[in-house]
Structure formats: C-alpha cells, structure tokens
Amino acid sequence: MNRPLSLLLDVIRFVAALLVFFHHAAFGKFGSGLPYRLVLTEREPVIVFFVLSGFVIAYSAETKDRTPGAYALNRLARLYSVVLPALVATVLLDAAGSWLAPALYADHWTDPATLANIGRPIGLQLAASGLFLNEIWWWDVWPGVNSPLWSLGYEAVYYLLFALVVWGGRYRWLWAGLAALAAGPKILLLMPLWVLGVAIYYLVQAERVGRFVGTLLVVGSVAAYVLFLSLGIKTALDRAVVDLFGDQTVALLSNSQGFLANYVTGILFSALLVGLAAIAQDLAAPLYRLQKPIRYLAGLTFALYLFHYPLVYFLRAVALAGHLDRLSPLVVTGGTLAAVALLAPVTEAQKGNFRRLIARIALRKPRPAL
C-alpha cells in the first residue's frame, strides 16, 4: 500500500468516526448545536469501517502479522489499549452524569435492544463487551450508554475467523465453521462486507485498474450513492427487510437489520476505494502537504469512536446541572472533541504496554507440580 493511499484511508477513517459522533450528538436531547439531519447517517459510517477493517487486516497479515502469534498479539493489543480505558471511562462518566442529571439518563431510547440492555447488571455488560461476546446470537449488550461498542462484537469475530482460515491448518474450515456457529447469524449477516474489504485489498495490490477507470469509479460510486439515498432506494430496502421478518425484525437482527442497504453501501464504498487507489499518486502532492494533520486526526479515530457517547451524555449533564444551556454546543461538541484529543494519545501509547503484557501472559510457563 503506497503512502498516498494510506493517507487517503486515514482521512476516510477519521471522517467516518466523526460522522458516528455527529449522528449521536445531533439528537436534540444533547443540545450539541449540530444539525438534526446528521442523525440520518445511521450505521452507514460503521459499514465503511467494516470494509476498511477487512482491507487493513489483509494488508497487515501480508506485511507485518505473518504468523498467528504476531497477528493475535497485535489485534488484542490494538483492541484492549482503547477498549479497556473506554469501559472504565463509561462506568465513571455514567455514574457522575446520572448523579448530575438523572432525567437525561432516564430518557433512554425506546428500541427493544436499549430497553433490554438497561435491565442487565453492569458486570455482565462489561464482561460481555470486554470479551467481545456482546453480539453473539441474539445478544445485544453494551456498557452503560456506550452503544457504539456493538461493532467490536462483530469485528472481533471477523478477526478470529480470518485467522482460523489463514492459519487453521488442515481443519481450518471446520474450526472457522464452529466459530461462526458460536457467533450466530446476526454477525455473519454483515460479514460479507468485511470479506469484501479483504478482496478489495488483493484487487488493489494487483494494480489492474488504471487512472481513467479509477476516476470513473470514484465519480460513479459517489453519484450512485447520492442517488441511492435521494431516490429512496435505501429506505425501500430497509422496508423490505421489515416486511420479510415482520415484528421480530429488530429482535432477530438488531444492528444487522439494514443488511440489504448495507450491502449496497459496502459495494459502492469498495468501488470508491478501488478508484481512489488507482488515482492516489495523482493526489500525492496535497496529501503530503497535509500529512501531519491527517496522521494526527487518524490517531484520534478509535478513541473518538469508543469514548464519544459517554462523553456526550456526561457533558450534557454538566451543562444541564450548571444551567449552561446557551453554552451547551460548546460544552458538548467542543468538550467531547477536546477530551478525545487528550485521551487518544494516552490510549494509543499503551499499545506497546498491552502487547508486552499479553505476550508475557501467553508465554508464561506453568510451574512444575510438586
């Protein structure tokens, strides 16, 4: 993967995380000052993350994580360096925020998954999320208000299935099949998007798409996505799923309930990705000039995704308790971004420590029996 393409992927990653933040913060109850239309992004940015994840994992497995040990070590260190601090922060922020503004936290969303999650003990929420078992089969679990963690319950399974297929040996498909069975249909329903990212990586590596076709793919995929939304095709596909599964749609599929529309989004984004890879060198000059801010913002991506929702809730609680309604946009929107900017370097710096800790645990030899 060349440097211009790497920088483009960093831009996409950050924009996707920012859209997830905007989607949640734009709800009126938070007083963020963001336009309400931003809530319409729904799960679309997460679909982008799934495709990008498959792309990046395929790249890492080919260039850096060439052994199952290195792969497992780096994936776990990457996840836990941010996930564990996010779990702790969620508990602390939720406790403080619900004390400051209990009505805000009592005003939960009325979807079945949220209502079911409210009744679960916080210990179960933390354990399921920390072990990435939070989305298996019909479970839909997250810690406190931090619902964006749902996607990690999907991605962690995809990481495992990829490793089993690549390094599982003679019985790789048996092990992968058993793991898939344990994960359940809901997670598997969105797996084609992640696999699509893997396939796109190898297509890009083959360099069979020239600049002219690449430009057509970029323009065409963007235009097609605009039409996909504006002509109501996405809405029609979502309605078709509801018609198919009826009243049990949300209970059965939860975050996978938009899978038909998600497939279209994933295919169009993949076309965009192939096109950008073909023309990346033409964009090298401006990308190199902006390299430092791009890399900096990309470094905020994971922390922004995992910390933003408990921060939005807590900072809105601060604004309500302090009678700072006029300053709420600054407190909620600006405060969340400022907090993420402070938290991200701290969590990112822990990757090496987590890698060493996990390696030490994995390599620890049992004591001989007396």
Rank of each mutant, 00 (worst) to 15 (best):
241 V>G: 14
328 S>I: 05
201 Y>R: 11
291 Q>K: 14
100 L>H: 02
32 S>G: 10
82 V>W: 03
273 L>I: 00
95 A>N: 09
234 K>A: 14
108 H>Y: 13
220 G>C: 11
107 D>H: 09
109 W>V: 02
76 L>G: 11
246 G>C: 04
65 D>E: 08
45 P>R: 10
348 E>Q: 15
58 A>E: 15
127 A>C: 12
215 T>G: 15
118 I>P: 02
228 F>D: 05
237 L>F: 09
364 R>C: 09
20 V>R: 11
80 Y>F: 15
302 F>K: 13
35 P>I: 10
91 V>H: 02
74 N>Y: 05
112 P>E: 01
114 T>N: 04
262 N>H: 09
138 W>P: 02
83 V>N: 06
86 A>N: 07
352 G>W: 13
18 L>K: 03
292 K>V: 10
149 L>W: 00
196 L>C: 09
16 A>S: 13
189 L>H: 10
77 A>P: 00
251 A>T: 10
62 E>M: 10
208 R>S: 08
20 V>D: 06
176 A>W: 03
347 T>I: 04
257 Q>G: 06
294 I>K: 02
189 L>M: 15
77 A>I: 00
340 V>N: 07
209 V>K: 12
133 L>G: 05
275 G>S: 10
220 G>P: 08
282 D>S: 13
278 A>T: 00
24 H>V: 04
340 V>I: 12
13 R>H: 11
223 A>Y: 06
148 P>D: 07
331 V>S: 01
143 P>T: 12
159 Y>V: 06
349 A>T: 00
13 R>L: 12
225 Y>D: 08
240 A>M: 10
351 K>C: 07
3 R>E: 13
127 A>T: 12
63 T>M: 14
127 A>M: 13
35 P>N: 14
113 A>H: 06
301 T>L: 06
254 S>P: 00
324 L>P: 07
93 L>M: 06
181 L>F: 13
